[in-house]
Design a protein around this nucleic acid. Sequence first.
RNA 1: GAGGUUGUAGCUCAGUUGGUUAGAGCGCUAGAUUGUGGUUCUAGAGGUCGAGGGUUCGAAACCCUUCAUCCUCCCCA
Length: 459
Amino acid sequence: MSNKPSIPQGTRDFGPEEVRKRQYIFNTIRSVFELYGFQPLETPAMENMETLMGKYGEEGDKLIFKILNNGLNDPKNQDKSRSGFEKVMEGKNSKDLTERALKYDLTIPFARYVAMNHGQLTFPFKRYQIQPVWRADRPQRGRYREFYQCDADVVGSKSLLNEVELVNIYNEVFTQLGLTGYELRINSRKILAALAEFCGGADKMIDITTAIDKLDKIGLDKVKEELAQRGLNEEQINTIEKYLLIDGSNEEKLNQIELLLGHLEIGKQGIEELEIVNRESGPGLAGSNLIIDFTLARGLNYYTGIIFEAKAPATVKMGSIGGGGRYDDLTGLFGVPNIPGVGISFGVDRIYDVLKDLDLFPEGVYTGTQVLFFNMGVAESSKAFSTMQLLRKQGVRCELYHEQAKMDKQFKYAEKKNIGFIVIIGSTEVQNNTGVVKNLKTGTQQTVPLADLSNKLFI
RNA sequence: GAGGUUGUAGCUCAGUUGGUUAGAGCGCUAGAUUGUGGUUCUAGAGGUCGAGGGUUCGAAACCCUUCAUCCUCCCCA
């Protein structure tokens, strides 16, 4: 029976305090995006199925939340519904059963938007987008079925200046949030492509990248094992091992990769890109927070150039808190070729968990109401109400206790809501046109004429 | 999709080999205290032991099923 209400697996309610903390993260990210000249965009929660399918790889397709069509039981649809169901049972998709799905990320809907509106847009188009996305994944630490992404993308520009700006956006946001120990790992898909070309051919690229991506998790030996399982021979695996053993500062890594893959045209391009981004991203940033990592692969198969992954400080064991990269032709998927782009994403829900673990939320996040007016009776509360309205006009956040009650109760209400000040207007005060202002943190109080009440008293 | 963990009061959790009426702390309500909270003291309310079935003279405990939860793998933010 279980009459208890519940919410779907992997979703969450956010109480007042949580919302405030999340808002703090959103506002920080939004203000940095705006600072760098990005403009807001919102797209629907759901997209047509064909917009999403096939864009995230085979695994990704399975994780898309599909929406059942309405009217399946309508007599004139029943045959279609049945045959559609048969198709679904075979693992295929059927428009007769589902033609819409919840969006899986913000990049593909954005690409769809650009493809639809490229005639009207001014390029390069820089947009940011802060919205929830949904994945039918099994929930666990740092993984939810509904979560927010904050994306910033630039389309219509091949300049590496964009990558450099995005690196600095990451740095600015994480620094403002106090997350100074973050790591921004970068690599280039072109280097990975060069490696694949050098040993095994381009068709082995996905096999190679998914295996080496796990290096820090499972270790070199296991990676070699997995490569062998995926059909690479010993010579090829040895080359990959050399590749994986590249280490040192960013500059040292670049020198070593030059020796290994610099002779290939695509490798040369990738190395040059990394070199530029590393050099231009700013003194103090490159090499400490910005780390060139040749094992970084990233799953999304539309990336073609520089790729990013932001990681929380190793101590919190959270993994990726953001990611992104360059794609040469995302809108080509929607019939509008030759619009290159590059973008990044912040995972707010994980950043929230990390800030909580590290106790990095500032004090000010918790404040709501500044002043509580005590309710001392009908005539008294009427006076309190009109006084309160005047204060509200000055921008002071205040409230009047909802009913006449013992002072004890009203005090406790203020305390629980973390309200810093109370104002008592009782019969004596009504007569004298005064109020007793008490600072609950220090315990001090003073009687002041109501006309003198102002926001200065409540700081 | 595969594997595991936990589910007892509003919250955090005890509960012995299966044995009478299931406990504690915190919180809540009321009083001590009719205009001054946080401290203290006193009293009180609050449980179909996640749900359903089974074993047993007897189940919170053992078995099966199911749901939820958290975690690991896969993959990802």
